[in-house]
Design a binder for these strands. Structure first.
Lengths: 341, 341
DNA sequence: ATTAGCACTCTGTGCTTGTGAGTGCTAACC
DNA sequence: GGTTAGCACTCACAAGCACAGAGTGCTAAT
């Protein structure tokens, strides 16, 4: 359904005013302060039609209009102009993210915190998918005594390290044996292939050494399992409480997002690396009825690698947020590429 | 000031009832349902005296009494009996904390989350102090390409790892050089002694190699600096919002605790490893006027190592919380000892 | 197609009133 | 002297009501 040029301008003005003020917008305000050169009565007629079409709604009879979910949708898809991040913003973003050279986990965490900070919303970032990746190498660092640190490095950029406690003093023979047998048997496998049974079969073949290697092998299986699941990082969950739109529901939405599997379900990447905006009930979940999600996929080494996005009130400054999310998704991808050239 | 036996019982009953219900307690309730064998008028007389002494106060004229801060103080110091954690609780605690064998950071993080979960309050845990500790060893793990992982292990149990990006392909000569020169020069020093100038002087003496070693050395200085500051872990900040005592102020208290330097200032260990309860204004900060802090120090290898505690409404179940904090502080110390035998 | 005018609707605020809970005080009692 | 019954008093809170203000929808005139 295509709106007339004037209806479009009215919808856009109402939406943008509402985004800023959070108050319903009345016909009087539009005719007096928003630069329309027609009377409030004319605007009322237009607004009545827009209401009938489902683009505007009234909180109550004697209030002004606010955009309905469909109104926001139309505004986002057809009316809004984008504000690309300013060079000051870009500088801020880069200087925050450059300080994590090399560590993908920290890189993603700071992407989340930058997103949260600059949008004032809650940010969600997934770690890279493990699909199609393989274990590149596994290293052991003796820490003295019975402790060893294990570092598993996966081709999608993921690094998992864990400290492993052996039953006896760690010997160089043990470490050598691990490298020779286990590491070589596991390298180039996909993380999700490394199951405990697989590791146990391997252990069985070690004969005498099986027992002393057990902690290392289970730690390895554990690390691989962890590398196989896409983790979810969040930041700025407390921002949720700042928005008066969430008053009352704020704490429960926060609780909802704190659950990682909930959080990750919200992000749905566009097919072509585009930013997607998912409004209210489009999220198909009760907690997000008056919230919206702006998300994008990031890619690394030319393939879709993960997703990131923000959750905020439906009344948010899409014109600025959409380009920001796009920019950060691109930057994360580029920095991941750089890390694992 | 010593209260008569009956006044003590009245204060304790009012406090305990108020802790459970959150409502002011009236004389009628006490005489009817709380097992006092005197009339409400008698209790009113006693309560009036307790009010005059500053142990009770009234939200308004026609309401019942609630304990004042001094009332809570007297109750905690002299009246309350402690409920040691049940064996079920102990089992829950241990099974949550045992899964972090070896990694002190994770151990402390799960201590925080157990504390938060079991008390329904926000939990704060500091990492071990660096005072008196020294760098035990530093290891490098080549991750392929230009990346190296550095693991700095400190004698107080702290481990700091960071990924470091070199300017060229990492060579074994480089790593060897680092081990030979730098690691030996730094080992057994206190983390706070490792300053950037110190590292730079060392680099200068490396001649030709100074340039290629620079990223490793700055990473090391960085890791040492990080190991020198006591970090603060928090958990369950969102619990703050659940307490109706914090209604309105909840978000700002949460914000206050999110600031680590604020959080750590709240914990004040007792002199003798005792649990300390710090009530409302005793915290000397506006945000905590109706909150209280229950904290204890934990020790490792026989010396005071760090602190942990919780922040919650003044109306909390001290009889259960105090022993719980004591138990977890002891357990953390014991587990840290075990980790770094 | 646009506009002025007017009746109508609904919210939010302030005011009043009534109710219930709990106290403080006094005088009687053991 | 400690304890108790009785009563007047205070205060928070909810309900009811009037009123102002904002904004609309409709009609008739331009």
């Amino acid at each position: 359904m295509e709106l007339s040029e004037r209806k479009g301008r009215i919808l856009a003005t109402i939406t943008e005013t509402y985004i800023v003020t959070g108050e319903p917008v009345g016909s009087k305000y539009l005719s007096a302060s928003a630069g329309f050169r027609v009377s409030s009565a004319t605007l009322r007629n237009e607004m009545a039609e827009l209401s009938e079409m489902g683009f505007l709604e009234q909180p109550h009879t004697s209030a002004g209009r606010i955009p309905s979910q469909n109104g926001f949708r139309y505004y986002i898809d057809r009316l809004m102009g984008l504000y690309e991040p300013s060079s000051v913003d870009i500088f801020r973003i880069r200087s925050r993210m450059d300080s994590n050279e090399g560590d993908p986990q920290k890189l993603l965490a700071s992407a989340a915190s930058v997103l949260a900070e600059m949008t004032g919303c809650a940010a969600i970032v997934t770690t890279p998918y493990s699909a199609g990746s393989h274990i590149r190498r596994t290293d052991l660092v003796p820490l003295g005594g019975r402790n060893v640190m294990m570092v598993v490095s996966v081709s999608n950029g993921t690094l998992k390290s864990r400290i492993c406690r052996c039953d006896n003093e760690v010997s160089y023979e043990m470490i050598d044996l691990f490298y020779k047998i286990a590491a070589s048997a596991f390298a180039d496998r996909a993380p999700e292939e490394i199951t405990l049974p697989l590791v146990q079969t391997l252990a069985a073949s070690l004969g005498d050494h099986a027992f002393e290697m057990a902690p290392l092998l289970t730690a390895f299986a554990d690390a691989a399992r962890e590398a196989a699941v896409t983790d979810v990082l969040t930041a700025g969950l407390s921002n949720i409480l700042r928005h008066r739109d969430f008053e009352g529901r704020g704490a429960s939405l926060q609780e909802f997002l704190r659950n990682r599997s909930n959080a990750v379900r919200l992000l749905r990447a566009g097919t072509d690396g585009q930013v997607r905006v998912i409004l209210g009930s489009e999220n198909r979940c009760r907690e997000l009825l008056n919230a919206s999600v702006v998300c994008a996929g990031y890619s690394a080494h030319g393939r879709e690698a993960g997703m990131l996005g923000i959750v905020g009130p439906m009344r948010m400054d899409y014109a600025a947020v959409v380009p920001l999310v796009r920019y950060i998704a691109g930057l994360v991808g580029a920095m991941l590429d750089e890390n694992t050239e």
